[in-house]
């Protein structure tokens, strides 16, 4: 089956409805919901102690990174990750949706395919990550209008970038049959790097972290801008993030042209 032509633009109000519906479904199992949210927040908290002990032991900064810088990166990445998986939780499921033929269900609906796929699932534990990032930010930085504004902007950028990277990696499934294992590993890779001071890496790793594994866009450049704001550098960051979003959308739509239906019959309830 070839995918077909015009669809209505994706209404913003539908995002709100998806969120309300997914949240209501999660809260139905109240204990499991609370355990997941607070369990994840507690889970993340452990790493504060790691950095506290390390900074106390060495008694100085780590090549320009203070404790508060590391906590800022943790805060925007945790909240950004949480926002991404709460609002667009289906990004990490794209491979499965494609290779099982579940995409047919979305293609039959009169809405733009990619946003309809992305917004239709919520990862509940992401609420814990989102809240944890906010608490960590408030606890480790002065709450001024300038700081809060930058925090909000960077959380939104991290969420957008993480989702775009997932869409890009998982879209490879359209071309290679099943790229799920690669996409899951590649998506986690940037997070593995970004939670450590960017200044510790050198040589080819620096190039890698500014391109294929964009940890620099997620954390290293935002923390530098948070310390000292530079409008030109900020503009370049937006452009770089935007480029990755455009590439991800293009990859998904190119892949969609190659998609062949499994003639799967299903419903979304």
């Amino acid at each position: 089956m070839r995918t077909v032509g015009r669809r209505r633009a994706f209404p913003v109000s539908l995002i709100g409805r998806y969120l309300r519906f997914n949240l209501a479904a999660a809260i139905e199992y109240r204990t499991a919901f609370l355990v997941q949210v607070f369990g994840m927040a507690l889970n993340n908290s452990a790493f504060i102690f790691f950095w506290l002990i390390l900074f106390e032991r060495i008694g100085s900064d780590i090549r320009g990174y203070e404790f508060s810088d590391v906590m800022f990166v943790w805060a925007i990445v945790a909240s950004g990750y949480g926002l991404a998986v709460v609002v667009m939780g289906n990004a990490s499921q794209i491979s499965r949706i494609v290779y099982t033929g579940e995409l047919d269900v979305y293609l039959l609906q009169p809405k733009t395919v990619l946003p309809n796929v992305l917004f239709s699932r919520m990862v509940v534990s992401g609420i814990g990550d989102f809240l944890y990032g906010i608490v960590l930010f408030v606890a480790t930085h002065p709450v001024t209008a300038r700081n809060v504004a930058l925090f909000v902007v960077f959380v939104a950028l991290v969420a957008t970038l993480m989702t775009a990277m997932r869409v890009l990696y998982h879209s490879l499934t359209f071309f290679f049959g099943n790229a799920e294992a690669f996409a899951l590993t590649a998506s986690d890779l940037a997070v593995s790097f970004v939670l450590y001071p960017g200044s510790i890496f050198r040589g080819p790793a620096v190039w890698l972290l500014h391109s294929l594994v964009p940890a620099a866009l997620m954390g290293y450049i935002p923390v530098a801008l948070f310390r000292e704001f530079d409008p030109v550098r900020f503009g370049l960051l937006i452009l770089a993030d935007g480029a990755i979003v455009v590439i991800a959308i293009a990859a998904f739509h190119l892949g969609l042209r190659r998609y062949e239906s499994g003639n799967r019959i299903g419903t979304r309830t």
């Binding site: 390390l54 090549r63 450590y196 001071p197």
Partner: peptide, 10 residues
């Protein structure tokens, strides 16, 4: 690799 990079600096 990440910890090697971190410990090298520390």
């Amino acid at each position: 690799f990440v910890f090697f990079s971190l410990w090298r600096v520390v």
